[in-house]
């Protein structure tokens, strides 16, 4: 359910970024790419549902939300091993030690936006 709060922030940030775009015509969003660390416990379906609801009647309505999952990586304080671990198993596969320091997995950021400006004449020229 925290996906809704997170999505509110996503939609706010997207709104700010779209307002900054220097374009003569209004722009709309085609795609937003978001990086999500596995420790964040984000359920993609929940985030997508929130995105669909919260972007209604905004320039981001109908855009697709692309999530890039970032694995949890850690270094073992005992033997120096470095690699990927499961979010629920912070145990060194080399020495069995549990003194692991996580490096990635908590990310939650908007990476990029794909936009297009509204071309009201498009429909006329196509018909």
């Amino acid at each position: 359910m925290h996906e809704f709060s997170i999505c509110e922030q996503l939609v706010r940030v997207i709104g700010e970024e779209l307002a900054r775009v220097n374009s003569e015509r209004p722009v709309h969003l085609l795609r937003a790419r978001v990086a999500v660390g596995r420790l964040r416990q984000i359920v993609p379906e929940n985030l997508r549902f929130a995105f669909e609801v919260l972007t209604r009647d905004t320039p981001a309505e109908g855009a697709s939300l692309e999530l890039r999952e970032i694995p949890v990586t850690a270094t073992c304080g005992g033997c120096g091993w470095h690699g990927e671990v499961e979010p629920n198993r912070f145990v060194c596969p080399e020495c069995g030690g549990t003194n692991l320091e996580a490096h990635t997995g908590r990310e939650l950021f908007l990476e990029s936006l794909e936009i297009e400006d509204d071309e009201p004449d498009n429909h006329q020229s196509l018909s």
Partner: peptide
Amino acid sequence: MSPTTIKVYRDLMEKNA
């Protein structure tokens, strides 16, 4: 205009932080 990609890299927890 054709679709344009904007790089953003903004933390979604920035306001809470």
